[in-house]
């Protein structure tokens, strides 16, 4: 039995502790926001936070979560129903295309800004290089991180007529 927290709620799972956290969360907890991309920690689509630090959940066994706290894409918005600054910036910069990698991108960006609220371009590169976006939205991701950090102004697109 592995005991840990997911998005602030206590969880107990009776599964092989070698199972990657990704599959435990997707299949047992039925939280499907986190995605499977490569299975070998090469693409970052499965990024979650383990005690606040980004991990590749496809290659991190459940045993590592014992007694710890996991945060997924479903758990980063404030409880008042609004969106986090990173999520808001992802919308204002119209970042996602297919969107499949974006949970992982947002989790990596969120972790970066938590430890480094005003990152440089180099620091953004280094924090985000583990996350592949096959739609190639790197320019928009970089811009959105800077908007969320308050380094740059939003280029807000229109909504209403």
């Amino acid at each position: 039995m592995t005991k840990f927290q997911v998005n602030g709620k206590p969880v107990e799972l009776d599964m092989d502790p070698a199972t990657p956290i990704l599959w435990a969360v997707r299949e047992q907890l039925e939280m499907t926001g986190t995605k499977f991309g490569c299975g070998i920690a090469q693409c970052g689509a499965c990024t979650m936070h383990l005690d606040g630090k980004p991990i590749r959940s496809c290659s991190t066994p459940l045993s590592q979560a014992e007694g710890k706290s996991i945060t997924t894409i479903e758990g980063i918005a404030p409880e008042d129903g609004t969106l986090s600054k990173v999520q808001q910036a992802w919308i204002s910069e119209q970042v996602p295309q297919c969107g499949y990698c974006q949970s992982g991108q947002i989790m990596s960006a969120t972790a970066l800004l938590k430890t480094n609220p005003k990152p440089s371009d180099e620091q953004i590169n280094s924090a985000m290089a583990g996350n592949v976006c096959r739609c190639g939205m790197y320019g928009r991701i970089r811009k959105a991180i800077k908007v969320a950090a308050g380094i740059e102004e939003s280029s807000t697109q229109e909504t209403a007529a």
Binding site: T32, I73, V95, P96, G99
Partner: peptide
């Protein structure tokens, strides 16, 4: 440049693939 209708679901994990 209207905002895309599919993007909100793609930032909070609810988009259904």
């Amino acid at each position: 440049p209207m905002q895309r209708t599919d993007i909100p679901a793609k930032v909070n994990g609810t988009a259904n693939f």
